[in-house]
Design a protein around this nucleic acid. Structure first.
Lengths: 150, 150
DNA sequence: ATGATTTAGTTAGCATAGCTAACTATATTC
DNA sequence: GAATATAGTTAGCTATGCTAACTAAATCAT
């Protein structure tokens, strides 16, 4: 893993870091999905719901943008959330737009689900030393910035 | 973001870090999926193939374990890879087991796909300062350890 | 040695989640 | 007022996750 080709050393290292992040992200989500399933709500729904809960009501298009999916995909995700009574579609001044709002039930469910979801991760984090934990908090922040830049 | 409830300060911080990692992982993969699609091979297939290419041949059950999915799921993922000529099912001494092996084509495709996939991520990483980049490489390693612990 | 059990993998059937293309309805513009 | 643009939805495809039920092979126990 520390073997790096001599030529264009920095680039190679960058690719390796990128690849490792990618791999870690895939496996991280697979592990956490187990807990997600207990809530009876899919990962895409959970993620979309969290935007509405923490970020407030918005239109379907805005939510699709925030979640990096196409409108038809978000339309169906929202349908699922609505069917479960976690989100409501409200009419707006502009008759084309809908305003999506998390219901009290949705907000409650999200908080519970989120807690359970990150619990195992938080536990794993708790196994780390104080130093590593601090570094990891930095990573999370850094990662968020990076994702915005991609 | 630095607002932490006084009670059980460390735990709350941990949850927040966990949540941020989770969110970042979701969005990271969504962004990278765009590039993935160009290869005509799904993310699960790509990930499974990479285990075979970098980790060598193994049984379906082992691959399912490595990828944190159930055997039927992996069976279908492998079927897709086989259909595309990227992986071969080989018979073993134990007639129940199959040995999965990446074909030369699979290996080639993976290297190309992997390169393209992490390219955008590596570019985003390149926008960071030298300090952040170093930190991130370190922390990617940390993340890998954590995922193993969950 | 043969019958029962365990193990590995597949098949069938269901749900979620991603996409594009095509449609509807409402706003905006000319 | 007609043409165009915009927001969402519907329809239909693929990929990926699952559990349940099946087949085939190996192992175990009598």
């Amino acid at each position: 893993m520390t073997v790096v080709k001599p030529k264009s050393e920095g680039h190679s290292e960058l690719l390796e870091t990128a690849d490792r992040l990618h791999s870690a992200a895939i496996h991280l989500l697979r592990r956490l999905r187990v807990g997600d399933r207990e809530s009876g709500i899919g990962p895409a729904q959970l993620s979309a719901l969290s935007v509405l809960v923490f970020g407030g009501p918005r239109s379907l298009g805005e939510l699709a943008d925030a979640e990096q999916v196409r409108p038809p995909t978000m339309s169906r995700i929202v349908s699922g959330l609505e069917r479960a009574g976690l989100v409501k579609r409200e009419a707006t001044e502009d008759g084309r737009r809908v305003r999506l709002r998390a219901t009290p039930k949705g907000t409650k469910i999200l908080w519970e689900g989120r807690k359970r979801r990150v619990e195992s991760l938080a536990n794993a984090l708790g196994l780390l030393g104080e130093t590593d934990r601090g570094r990891l908090a930095e990573l999370a922040e850094l990662l968020r910035e990076i994702v915005r830049k991609i």
